[in-house]
Computed example of a mutant assay.
Amino acid sequence: MKSFYLILVVQSLFVVSAFSQSFDFFYFVQQWPGSYCDTKKSCCFPSSGKPDADFGIHGLWPNYKDGSYPSNCDPDSHFDQSQISGVLRRMRSEWPTLACPSNDGIQFWAHEWEKHGTCSALDQHAYFQTTLDLKNQVNLLQSLTSAGIEPNGNTYSLESIKDAIKQDVGYTPFVECNNDSSGNSQLYQIYHCVDNSASKLIECPVFPRGRCGSQIEFPTF
């Protein structure tokens, strides 16, 4: 009987280990709300009110080194709001939704968990807590404003933005742009990479596709 239970434990550990190694790294993605809102599509503030003028979390996404990624790994694992009850205040502040119509963020967080979190080898509470903790490590607005790069509608060089973040955070970011309502390129999302245990930042094995121009706008919010 002891041998039987030992086999079950070993098999369980193997499954957990295999699953945890089924992707190579995470993208940790933060978004500038001014750029989300300053598009032809516009935005809606969450039911909790206008978010702070700070980068908000978009997500923590498992990825492969070939540029592809797993998604929706467990269709039976649905978002459970009770799992984030202890961090709900931080979720509203640091992981706000800007989608229309105005809402409480539950649909956004459910999407992130079900598409990406179920592939993370973390349980729901750990997934959201870990992502919030990463934001504490990567204070993008502080990195940029300390270098004189402020969200005032001015244009800055892409290289100066990347250099300011790398100097402060210690790792090379990927900068994603979108277009404002007039078609101008603007600072939209910043990607950093995290090892597949979600325990530390790393240099990105591969960057997402897409590129910004050499000069980009940092809009107000």
Score class of each variant (00 low, 15 high):
52 D>V: 11
54 D>V: 07
55 F>H: 09
60 L>K: 02
61 W>K: 08
61 W>H: 06
62 P>G: 05
65 K>V: 07
66 D>S: 07
66 D>R: 03
66 D>K: 03
67 G>C: 03
68 S>E: 13
69 Y>S: 13
70 P>D: 07
73 C>D: 09
76 D>R: 13
77 S>I: 01
77 S>K: 13
78 H>P: 00
78 H>D: 13
79 F>D: 09
80 D>F: 06
81 Q>T: 12
83 Q>Y: 10
83 Q>I: 01
83 Q>S: 15
87 V>W: 13
87 V>F: 13
89 R>D: 15
89 R>F: 12
90 R>K: 15
91 M>P: 06
93 S>P: 04
94 E>I: 01
96 P>S: 12
96 P>V: 08
97 T>F: 07
98 L>S: 10
101 P>D: 11
102 S>Y: 04
102 S>H: 05
102 S>N: 01
105 G>H: 03
105 G>Y: 02
106 I>G: 08
108 F>K: 11
108 F>R: 11
109 W>H: 03
109 W>C: 01
109 W>G: 04
111 H>N: 07
113 W>Y: 09
114 E>T: 06
116 H>W: 11
116 H>M: 08
118 T>R: 06
118 T>I: 03
119 C>P: 02
120 S>W: 10
121 A>L: 02
122 L>G: 01
124 Q>M: 14
125 H>Y: 15
125 H>I: 01
125 H>R: 12
125 H>N: 14
128 F>S: 11
128 F>R: 10
129 Q>S: 14
130 T>I: 01
131 T>W: 09
131 T>Q: 11
132 L>H: 10
133 D>P: 03
134 L>S: 04
134 L>E: 07
137 Q>L: 14
138 V>W: 11
138 V>Y: 12
138 V>I: 15
140 L>W: 08
143 S>G: 04
148 G>P: 00
149 I>L: 10
152 N>S: 04
158 L>T: 09
159 E>L: 14
160 S>N: 15
161 I>Q: 00
162 K>I: 05
162 K>P: 00
165 I>T: 04
165 I>S: 02
167 Q>Y: 14
169 V>G: 02
171 Y>W: 08
173 P>Q: 10
174 F>G: 06
176 E>Y: 05
178 N>F: 00
180 D>M: 05
181 S>A: 13
182 S>C: 03
182 S>R: 14
182 S>V: 08
184 N>A: 01
185 S>I: 00
186 Q>V: 00
186 Q>H: 06
186 Q>K: 03
190 I>R: 02
191 Y>T: 03
191 Y>R: 09
192 H>D: 09
193 C>T: 09
194 V>G: 07
194 V>M: 08
194 V>E: 09
195 D>P: 01
